[in-house]
Amino acid sequence: MSNSAAEEKPSRFMLVMGKIKGLLAIILVAIIYIWSARGVGFSLIEIIGELPSFFNLLWDMVPPNWAYSIRLINPLLETFQTAIAGTILGTLLAIPLILLCASNVNRNNPLYFASKGFMNLMRTIDPMLYAAILVAGVGLGAFAGMLALMFFSMAVNAKLTSESLEAIDDGPLEAIEACGGNKLEMIKYAVAPQILPTFASYTLYVFEINIRASTVLGLVGAGGIGVNLDTSLNLFRYPNAAMVILATFVVVVLIDHLSNVLREELV
């Protein structure tokens, strides 16, 4: 087979090869799927067989225990305090990390790669995993939850904002340098005005994630409303569990919406 012939037009051989490749790809995806499904014990028959007990559970949850809602006010407050404190501390810690992880601001290569590596390492850990580790370290409760969200917020915010920061207009940075300004002045006069709206928007976004994460931190003992959910389910108090889910849902939707409105104002 000569090269020139292949360049002129796709030969019959190439067309057949293309179809075989497509078929092989479908078979490969199917094999991976079957392997995963068997691993988790997925079975359609079992799903259909379990449907009645699933509906029984739902039925047990109705009506929710409305009276229980009074006792959820404090745990809900604690949940959001956890999210707010975690977000604020994480955001403060993110600021130096953002500047270190942006190559246009931090021109020291070893420091840049070390910071980026640290940020990526911190980002691979899920907030629930942080919480589980921290509960072992500092004990049960919302403090562990707040620390978990702090580490998570720091890493995610640093990742998102530093990438936006690397895409800002470098012209003003050069202008400050040409005026004889130092690094801090460059950050204040050329970097901050360009990145602050984006940073604020990402901070609110991280806050939204944290609000959702904070509601389940209790499942690993890191405080908040999740503790009530865990207890209600373990004690088979399904009307209470339903009330927890309902209250969480309503408040999360409200805060999410509020944060979204704020974020749109920023852009």
Binding site: G171, A175, A178, C179, G180, Y189, P193, Q194, P197
Partner: peptide
């Protein structure tokens, strides 16, 4: 550098300031 002023093709102003 503070004794040498520079003017740029793209002005290099901070737009938001």
């Amino acid at each position: 550098r503070s004794e040498v002023g520079m003017i740029f093709q793209n002005f290099n102003l901070v737009n938001r300031s």
